Simulated scan of single mutants.
Amino acid sequence: MLKPYQSLPIQDCGEPLVAIPLTEFSTETPPPYARLGADYGDQSPYCLRAGVLAALQDAQANLRRIEPGWSLHIFDAYRPLAVQQFMVDYTYGELLKGRSLSPDALSNAQQADLWQEVYQFWAAPNPDPATPPPHSTGAALDLTLINALGELVPMGGEIDEISVRSHPDYYAHPQNDREQTYGDHRQLLRDAMAAAGFRQHPNEWWHFSQGDQLWAWLNQQSDPTGEYLARYGRVIF
């Protein structure tokens, strides 16, 4: 299932995939998808293209100018195709389990509806170099905020949650103080990342990218007269 942004051309700049310095950022150990059983082989999820890492360091500096002592908490960054496939299948299974559905009892229409839900949030693990999943380019990452006490900041929804609460602007019109806080935290993350050149996924408050097809497509939506190329394609070892 191709997404609109995957029609944009890629002109890979050849920048290397480099390790995120874990002393500079907050991360999870072990990585979340590895805990679920995803096999990264000899790769680490805590890697990005060199230019994207430099932008991420700028984003954290932006955050700390507003909230001293706070950090970006990286949930997931580089993702091999095998891990993308694992998580797509895992998410489908979790939807079945959460709704007490048996895969053998589903009609074709029901299966199609479930897969549509999955692919609203997950890119297909397509091996075609022209249509890579964003995380497989080393130009996308999932992240949230951690405060000066080392506590995860409440964002009003979990990373990877398949729900309308995952939409970045879900709390744009808060009904109470708690929702206002969630909205403020989401805006803080968005502002810190945007000031460093990142674009946010339209459906996911936690997903940001720079230089991939989604980033180029979002720039084109903002500026239809411009011509945008993705500068990062799938990392191939």
Results as ranks from 00 to 15, higher is better:
residue 120 Q to Y: 00
residue 172 A to M: 06
residue 180 Q to A: 14
residue 74 I to E: 09
residue 107 S to W: 03
residue 135 H to Y: 03
residue 76 D to A: 08
residue 2 L to S: 12
residue 13 C to D: 12
residue 163 S to K: 05
residue 75 F to M: 09
residue 88 V to A: 06
residue 208 F to Q: 03
residue 33 Y to V: 07
residue 206 W to M: 03
residue 151 E to I: 07
residue 116 Q to T: 07
residue 21 P to H: 09
residue 213 Q to S: 06
residue 15 E to M: 07
residue 26 S to H: 13
residue 106 L to C: 03
residue 150 G to D: 15
residue 187 Q to M: 07
residue 80 P to Y: 06
residue 80 P to D: 11
residue 36 L to C: 10
residue 167 H to N: 10
residue 210 Q to P: 02
residue 7 S to W: 05
residue 79 R to D: 07
residue 107 S to A: 04
residue 71 S to V: 03
residue 28 E to K: 11
residue 172 A to Q: 12
residue 74 I to K: 06
residue 28 E to W: 07
residue 166 S to C: 10
residue 232 Y to N: 13
residue 67 E to G: 04
residue 186 R to S: 03
residue 218 L to F: 07
residue 159 I to D: 13
residue 93 G to N: 06
residue 2 L to F: 04
residue 230 A to Y: 03
residue 157 G to R: 07
residue 151 E to K: 10
residue 126 N to W: 03
residue 59 A to D: 14
residue 169 D to V: 05
residue 122 W to S: 00
residue 150 G to P: 12
residue 100 S to E: 03
residue 106 L to N: 02
residue 180 Q to C: 11
residue 102 S to T: 05
residue 118 V to Q: 05
residue 185 H to V: 07
residue 44 S to C: 14
residue 103 P to K: 02
residue 129 P to G: 08
residue 218 L to Q: 14
residue 178 R to V: 13
residue 212 D to Q: 04
residue 14 G to M: 08
residue 111 Q to N: 08
residue 51 G to P: 08
residue 79 R to P: 01
residue 45 P to M: 11
residue 127 P to A: 06
residue 158 E to R: 06
residue 22 L to P: 11
residue 159 I to A: 12
residue 156 G to N: 13
residue 163 S to N: 09
residue 211 G to C: 05
residue 37 G to I: 07
residue 24 E to D: 15
residue 121 F to D: 05
residue 13 C to V: 12
residue 100 S to Y: 01
residue 149 L to T: 14
residue 198 F to V: 01
residue 214 L to D: 03
residue 214 L to Q: 12
residue 105 A to I: 02
residue 73 H to C: 09
residue 18 V to N: 12
residue 220 Q to K: 14
residue 183 G to T: 08
residue 129 P to L: 09
residue 237 F to Q: 15
residue 116 Q to I: 00
residue 31 P to D: 15
residue 205 W to S: 08
residue 93 G to K: 02
residue 48 L to I: 09
residue 91 T to G: 01
residue 217 W to F: 13
residue 64 R to L: 13
residue 150 G to T: 14
residue 200 Q to G: 04
residue 219 N to K: 12
residue 81 L to Y: 03
residue 10 I to Y: 02
residue 47 C to F: 12
